[in-house]
Design a binder for these strands. Structure first.
Ligand SMILES: O=c1ccn([C@H]2C[C@H](O)[C@@H](COP(=O)(O)OP(=O)(O)OP(=O)(O)O)O2)c(=O)[nH]1
Ligand SMILES: [Mg+2]
Length: 780
DNA sequence: TTGCAGTGACA
DNA sequence: TGTCAC
DNA sequence: GCAA
């Protein structure tokens, strides 16, 4: 519809001012504009190249207006919060955008600015992760049985010149006998009086990590107990999995460990060491009393908590594993003796020697695990700590100020100004204003990213809170690594990146050393594959998928034939019927074409309607998983958009554009409602596409725009930041003073008072998030 | 140990 | 309420 | 899984 653009341009002032908020001004796209010309001739008949840019002067005027009025409006309190938050703005920010954008539309007017390679990009996290099972299936076989990839073997044989092999107990003994004296040094002996039994990852031999740690224990005044004796030992320090730890202790159950002996992780000591620079011995020792915080096993938390802490962790495990069918099935399918699969690669190692693996000789196993944890940079058991300290000083990429997990920081694409500290070391990464460029998809750590992404997808497909958050966490690690400028070289370097913890760092190390990540194949079991297939059906999630799997279904055909008596809801039937279509992403041009059919119809009902296409389209993505359309209308003339959706849907049904309904708003007359359905271009051979309508009251348009533009991860990050600042953000607005139910959060007792909702920038500004164009709001 | 966004539709 | 989706 |  070439006409639309023109028409909109002449909108009356109120609309104009709404539209001219920065997000709607055609961007002059300073984008990287990667070479490749081959791409994306916008095939849409609607695409009209003749519609050119607006003069950008609007932008300045508008922005000025906003800031002026804004500053007077900000309450002191708010300012303070913002100022406080500004601290974390100093982080080094990088524009995370995938150089993806093709065009930014302005009410039909468009400016195309094609970008080639977006299409190849991995699907955004928001898209339903239904990778065609093929990819998984094909790859999966590979090294399931050969647990030591060739590369690894080569490596080890080449570079290991290990000192004499000793068991941990032997080494501890030796230390006690020969070296104890040398630790009279000036370090704070916060371990004085503590008798520690240390369990490393490997019971057979004391690896370099184990040795280093034992020395540290002694160095800080601890007494190492070579052989566990409950009458002597006061603390058990272990990073090993439950089973190994128990074996080392000679117990068969965690509950056999006497209650007076806290069982803690190495972190317990590590963080105490970390405090030596800051606190005196007293304080450190006091801190160390909070032993539960470092409890090695959730089940034992109570025991460690002599100071009356209680726990829910056990319960949590119970509930997740208590989902009988799925849980049991998965575990059975694994035929692994280990029920707790959360222990990461380290445990994986141990596991291998136990589980029905076409086993590998013990020696090799050991070397791998040693190698992973030590060597390279990491011989030093303090490596982690150094890395952290270093990070805090010279490396602004990671741990920064002591500001919470600044997910909020992630919201910001790049620092508006280089913080002084930042500008010095890291000028390489085109700073501040200078860098409209995403880390290229062939990122230096690409191999790592791919592996982690795969793992993330696998976890996403599983049931249970645990898996859910694990996937969430992977997302963060992945983004952090993606942004990280250098090739990661070691465990400690990985560890120094905010968002990469112990488990992930170990995985990275494995990838670096072996080029592979066994955890992937370990997780990629049959049930996960099938389950992912099922979850590709619209309306089917983890729960249903696992239910069907337990009912014996394995293929879509099984479902069609109701094998095992499974029943599909009507929505799921539609989802199944159009499985391929729905899981396909449409080219941007098609989204546009459909939209351009819809919009005029809506406008024909009421020319003052605001009808825009949102979601990935507005973010400029080259392909869209669906079409998201926002409808609202100014109320200055006393009218509203109430009822238009109903009429619009009727018309679209009639015109054969909408073909199926998936969810119909409760009350079509409300100003705010949501519709979901399927649609198609009325041309032969066209595929079904998902389409969503969202109508909102005019006053909510800013918040709605923000919400509906996404991406989802960006939204969550933004909302998280809002919370941290004491606000609450949703699709209707930004609210202040929301009181939440203590214990059992999430529940709001109070709706709060509206702070902002009419424009996007207002919300950005109050939250002190630098303005970002839709195409910059990509975090998936 | 806790929290990790916040909502609507549907069965 | 749990499940799924945005 | 990560951070606090
Ligand atoms: O969990 C979610 C999912 C979506 N959204 C918002 C952001 C998103 O951009 C918008 C539209 O959702 P959709 O699922 O269509 O995602 P998209 O960003 O448009 O990507 P796709 O191309 O897959 O449609 O709704 C959320 O806030 N949270
Ligand atoms: Mg979408």
């Amino acid at each position: 519809m070439p006409g639309t653009g023109e028409e909109e341009f002449e909108q009356p002032s109120e609309i104009l001012s709404f539209l001219s908020s920065p997000e709607n001004i055609p961007q002059k796209q300073p984008l990287p504009e990667p070479s490749s010309p081959a791409c994306d001739p916008p095939t849409s008949p609607i695409e009209d190249p003749s519609l050119q840019n607006l003069p950008c002067s609007d932008l300045d005027v508008h922005t000025k207006g906003i800031t002026a009025s804004g500053s007077t409006q900000l309450s002191l309190e708010v300012k303070e919060r913002v100022a406080k938050h500004a601290v974390m703005k100093r982080r080094d920010k990088v524009l995370p955008l995938e150089a993806e954008h093709t065009e930014i539309t302005f009410l039909g007017r468009s400016q195309s600015n094609k970008d080639p390679d977006q299409a190849r990009k991995s699907p955004s996290a928001s898209s339903r992760a239904v990778l065609p099972p093929v990819s998984g299936v094909l790859k999966s076989k590979r090294s399931r049985l050969s647990s030591v990839p060739p590369k690894a073997q080569k490596k080890q044989s080449g570079k290991k010149e290990k000192p004499r092999l000793m068991t941990p107990a032997e080494y501890a003994q030796q230390l006690l006998e020969t070296h104890a004296e040398r630790y009279k040094s000036s370090v704070i002996k916060f371990l004085e009086g503590k008798n520690i039994f240390y369990v490393g990852g490997d019971m057979q031999y004391a690896g370099e990590r184990t040795r280093g740690r034992m020395e540290l224990i002694l160095k800080h005044g601890g007494l190492l107990i070579p052989n566990f004796d409950p009458k002597i030992v006061t603390h058990i320090v272990t990073d090993a999995p439950k089973i190994s730890t128990l074996r080392a202790l000679g117990y068969s159950r965690l509950s056999d460990i006497p209650d007076h002996i806290p069982t803690v992780k190495w972190n317990w000591i590590l963080s105490a060491i970390g405090r030596t620079g800051l606190l005196g011995k007293e304080d450190i020792v006091a801190k160390m009393e909070e032993v539960w915080y470092y409890a090695a096993f959730g089940e034992r938390m109570e025991a460690s908590a002599s100071r009356g802490r209680t726990l829910k962790l056990q319960a949590r495990h119970d509930t997740t594993q208590g989902l009988v069918t799925p849980g049991a099935l998965t575990d059975l399918a694994r035929s692994s003796p280990l029920l707790n699969r959360d222990l990461g690669p380290l445990k994986n190692q141990v596991n291998r020697s136990i589980s029905p693996q076409p086993c590998v000789d013990k020696g090799k196993q050991r070397e791998i695990s040693e190698e992973r944890t030590g060597k390279n940079l990491g011989i030093d058991p303090l490596a982690e700590f150094y890395a952290e300290a270093r990070a805090a000083h010279e490396n602004n990429w990671s741990h920064f100020g002591d500001f919470d997990e600044s997910d909020s920081g992630d919201i910001e694409p790049t620092a508006d100004e280089p913080s002084p500290r930042v500008s010095q070391n890291k000028q390489k990464r085109g700073w501040t204003c200078d860098t409209p460029q995403a880390p290229k998809s062939p990122c230096v750590n690409q191999d790592i990213l791919e592996k982690l992404q795969e793992l993330q997808e696998l976890h996403k497909a599983k049931v249970g809170d645990e898996e859910h958050w694990r996937a969430y966490s992977y997302n963060k690690s992945i983004r952090a690594i993606h942004i990280y400028p250098k090739r990661i070289q070691s465990y400690s370097e990985a560890r120094s990146i905010r968002g990469v913890g112990d488990k992930t760092a170990l995985k990275i190390k494995e990838i670096l050393q072996t080029g592979d990540l066994r955890r992937i194949n370990f997780e990629k079991t049959d049930d996960v594959k099938v389950t992912r297939l099922f979850q590709g059906i619209y309306g089917v999630g983890q729960s249903t998928a696992f239910k069907w799997y337990s009912a014996g279904c394995r293929t879509l055909e099984d479902l069609r034939s109701q094998k095992g008596g499974v029943r599909l809801s009507s929505v799921q039937m539609i989802g199944l019927q159009y499985y391929d279509d729905i899981n396909d992403r449409m080219p941007r041009s098609e989204a546009k074409a459909i939209f351009e059919l819809v919009k005029p119809i809506a406008l024909s009902f009421d020319s003052k309607l605001f009808v825009e296409i949102m979601g990935s389209f507005r973010r400029g993505k080259a392909d869209c998983g669906d079409i998201d359309i926002l409808i609202t209308r100014p109320t200055d003339d006393g009218q509203t958009h109430s009822g238009v959706l109903k009429r619009l849907l009727a018309a679209l049904h009639k015109g054969g554009i909408i073909t199926e309904d998936l969810a119909i708003p409760e009350n079509l007359a409300d100003l705010e409602c949501v519709y979901r359905g399927l649609c198609r271009l009325p041309s032969p051979g066209s595929r079904r596409r998902r389409i969503d309508f969202l109508t909102v009251p005019w006053e909510s348009r800013g918040a709605a725009l923000l919400y509906y533009t996404g991406d989802d991860i960006f939204n969550r990050a933004m909302r998280l930041k809002a919370n941290k600042l004491g606000y609450s953000l949703n699709q209707r607005g930004l609210f202040n003073g929301v009181v939440r139910d203590v214990k059992d959060r999430r529940v709001k007792l109070n709706q709060g008072t509206l702070v902002a909702s009419e424009t996007e920038e207002e919300i950005f500004r109050i939250l002190d998030v630098p303005w970002q164009e839709p195409h910059e709001r990509i975090r998936g």
